[in-house]
Computed example of a mutant assay.
Amino acid sequence: MNHLSAEQAKVWLTDILFDIAGSTLYAVGVHMFTAPNHIAPGGVTGIATMINYLLGAPIGTVSLLINIPLLFLSFKLLGKAMTVKTLKSVFIMSLILNVMNFILPVYTKNPLLAALFGGVGIGAGLAIIFMRGGTTGGTDIAARLLQLKFPYIPMGRAMLLVDCVVLITSSFVYRQLESALYGLIAIFTCTRVLDSLLYGVDVGKMVLVISEKSQEISKAIINDLDRGATLLAGKGAYSGNDKYVVLSAVRKNQFHKLKNLVYDIDPRAFIIVAEAGEIMGEGFKPIQNKTK
């Protein structure tokens, strides 16, 4: 029992450290880049940024107040464990947002750069928090609820969908269309950084090659591209002939060479290409669990 308690304490301490690190990066993106340039970076923070502009209320405090009713929704739909982790992350995030407001310098020279670097800071901060299974509330909860119904939607894109209303509202609050446009850039940058850190940067192409010369093609992929290939047993639905289908995963910059390689061996080959959001294993990112 004592061992279990010590292990739980270790997990909670690690979660808190990740929350602090992620919240600090998030606060840098907000207070140093987006808020001073009248850019609402979506979600509850975007709403809090606009309220801060109108009333002068602290962004962290407003974010906490907005999240309170959302936490009740989280408790009902996502369960107690998720809600407790969310409450912890929301409190730490709100506290650091308020504290960093008095520490960080502001950048106002170029709104485009502010949108880009603000998005990087916010996206990296969220990714660090999400890596431990936490959430900062607000549209993060809405995005996770959306994923319950549509699990194939990446977290970053799910958040992008629920942030559109905030962007439209910001153009009216700040009375300039540019605020919404810069906000869109910030959110897009945030989602790209978030998805890259959560789902990996080892993206590539998954290729299926149907050919009468499958074995020759697979050997060429192994020897010329230094990539693995798997032969899948198949049968032509129309012809009824047995054949092999070549399955291979390559980096994006190798796909053009693979296509030419297949064409040189069999110009009549049939190629199916799909985006591989993350590739793990030899030659790509190692398979490991970083959340323990």
Rank of each mutant, 00 (worst) to 15 (best):
H256L: 12
K10V: 13
E278Y: 10
I272Q: 10
P105L: 07
G133N: 09
A115S: 13
L181A: 11
T191D: 11
L70S: 05
L4N: 11
L231A: 06
E282G: 08
I20S: 06
T139Q: 09
G234V: 03
M159D: 05
N2S: 15
G125I: 02
T189Q: 05
F188G: 01
L95W: 00
V162E: 07
L73N: 04
F188D: 02
M1S: 14
H3G: 14
L148E: 13
A114T: 05
V120M: 11
V166I: 15
L177D: 01
I265A: 06
S214C: 04
V162D: 05
L126Y: 13
G125Y: 07
G137H: 12
V262L: 06
I279L: 12
D202L: 00
M50L: 06
L184C: 12
L4I: 15
D15C: 02
D224E: 11
T49L: 06
F117A: 07
L145S: 00
L87Q: 07
Y238D: 06
M280P: 00
L145V: 03
A142D: 02
L177W: 14
M155K: 03
P154G: 05
A233R: 14
V193L: 10
T86Q: 11
A114R: 03
I279M: 15
C164F: 15
L184M: 14
V165K: 01
N101Q: 10
L95V: 15
T189E: 07
K10D: 15
W12V: 11
P267D: 04
Y26T: 09
L232I: 15
V165R: 04
I96A: 00
K109F: 07
Y238C: 08
L25M: 13
T136K: 09
P36Q: 12
G42Q: 08
L146Q: 04
M82Q: 12
A276D: 09
T14P: 01
R132L: 00
G283M: 12
L25Y: 00
I128Q: 00
L225R: 10
L177R: 04
G183F: 14
M50G: 07
P154N: 02
I39G: 09
I96F: 02
V209A: 01
V44N: 06
E275C: 00
L77K: 15
